[in-house]
């Protein structure tokens, strides 16, 4: 990482001459300036934020509701449906990407935010994850709330959902990162540069022979694209660790 950061502050020309030059001045901001000068870079950044945030909110809402349903409600075919959700975990994106492309083309969803966000919402990991989390919450709490006169919705919204906060944070961070880093689907779905996400956009802006003649620029791109992710990680560090340790509900 230090290597990447250091290289990003060197001019392309200096690196062409001697890649070992990274450790010595002069350092320069010209690579970052070049990124921001790309007329669409800020648009791509905004696109990535919109897509990643949209995917995160969508996954959290759907997974929480579905997880609560699977964990707590009685309805026909509950077990079979849950098995189908589990099977969904085993389906790789590669297997569905062609039909999905066809479907989105038919629906006119390519080159749109919904087109970029919707595929993230179909993953079953979130549903599985939240179901397990809801199941771990003692049923006595539901019963206490029912005796306290809570409606089903009050029980979900005021008692159970707040207790899943650590899981929400973890799932949210993972979803955000996955959506942010996704390259393949935006590459397929967004064909006009207005709808490029940052990953696709930056890649499209790379010069030929970037690995050799544009090394500093390449590194600056990598650093630039990682900053939002670092922010997310640092902001939610505590929740992630706590959820991983599995001590959230006590």
């Amino acid at each position: 990482m230090a290597w990447t950061v250091l290289l990003s502050f060197k001019s392309n020309a200096a690196l062409m001459a001697d890649s070992g030059a990274a450790f010595a001045p002069p350092w320069t901001l010209e690579n970052y300036a070049a990124i921001l000068q790309g007329s669409l870079t800020l648009q791509w950044l905004a696109n990535s934020l919109i897509v990643a945030t949209g995917a995160t909110i969508g996954v959290l809402v759907l997974s929480s509701l579905a997880g609560y349903g699977f964990a707590r409600l009685e309805f026909p075919f509950r077990r079979s449906l849950f098995v189908i959700v589990l099977l969904g975990l085993a389906v790789p994106e590669q297997a569905v990407i062609l039909p999905r492309h066809q479907l989105f083309a038919w629906a006119g969803l390519h080159n749109s935010y919904p087109g970029l966000i919707l595929p993230s919402l179909t993953g079953s990991f979130g549903v599985f994850f939240m179901t397990q989390y809801f199941r771990a919450i003692p049923k006595e709490l539901d019963e206490a709330a029912l005796l306290d006169g809570a409606s089903r919705f009050t029980l979900f919204w005021k008692v159970l959902l707040p207790l899943t906060w650590p899981a929400q944070a973890t799932l949210g961070v993972f979803t955000f990162l996955a959506a942010w880093n996704d390259y393949w689907w935006p590459l397929i779905s967004a064909t006009t540069s207005d709808y490029f996400t940052l990953t696709v956009g930056l890649a499209s802006a790379q010069m030929n022979y970037a690995q050799t003649s544009g090394l500093g620029f390449l590194m600056a791109q990598a650093v630039f694209a990682s900053i939002p992710i670092l922010v997310v990680y640092i902001a939610f560090q505590k929740q992630i660790v706590r959820a991983m340790a599995g001590t959230a509900v006590r």
Binding site: P138, E140, L141, E143, A144, L146, L147, G149, A150
Partner: peptide, 16 residues
């Protein structure tokens, strides 16, 4: 349950 005028103390307390 909430409409019965009954209060219950649970074995494991069930505090929120």
């Amino acid at each position: 349950p909430g409409a019965r005028g009954i209060a219950m103390v649970f074995q494991h307390y069930a505090l929120y």
